[in-house]
Amino acid sequence: MTATVTTPGARRTRVLSKKALLPWVFLAPGLLLALVFKFLPMGKGVWLSFFKVRPFLGDQWVGLDNYTRVLTDHRFLDAIGHTLLLGIGQSLGAIAVGFLLALLLEGQARTLKIVRTAVFLPVVTATAVVGELWRLLYYPTSDGLINHALGFLGLGPVQYLDNPNTALWATMVMSVWMLAPYNMVIILAGLAGVDRTLYEAAAMDGVSLWQRLRYITLPAIRPALGIVLTLAAIRGLRVFTEVYVLTGGGPAGSTEVWMTRAYTLGFTRNDIGGASAASVVLLCVTLLLTVTVNYFRKRGDVR
């Protein structure tokens, strides 16, 4: 009697364990790649941040020394302000422009598809190329495209990148140009899911454009906006390539951000330990920010 009861039970566990194993087997190649190329180097980076790194002579344990050095360095403290301004500015700017582009380019017509593809190009272009392109656009004489256009309005050539008061803003504009189309695609997907009958009902009630956006469109694309915001939180503060190719942190350090500073520390000053510590600090802040954004997103979803 007991035997007949246990046999099917045992078989079920065996089948279950096989079933539980299978997804992991499918995931294994990806996980293995991530482990070798992502998590191990990341762990090593965290580990190195506690050492004075000397690859050949052997690393020296220095405890939290690298962290205190980074967090008390006035150049890093200056960079915090620039990083926040650039990170928040470019993220919000890219969301606003992405939303606008999505509204303008929503639809099925073939011309729209072509325009959408054209608008998306900056996202797939290498940042280094984009940087060179914008250096040409910003060229500080009337030969530069933007200054040439200003010339028609009778405005003199502007030194976008060589003026410490405008360099950070000029970098921000380029970043928005690069990031906005990506947000546009996500928001477009959200827009496609908006119930058309709501628009029709609204039209019958005679609402204004603003009211339609505020009460129908925005609430309907909340999930899409949530994704866009999460992505912005993740990548907003780690801005590096844009600044590196456009201004190199100059002039007079006015566009120096957290990661360009960490790069200088690691690769021109050979202080890998300090650079690792700076990167770990950024990782923690980014993690915290992402968790916070997600918390508010979930709370909003529940409501």
Partner: peptide, 8 residues
Amino acid sequence: QPGALTAI
């Protein structure tokens, strides 16, 4: 030349 302050 213009742009000297950010030129390499």
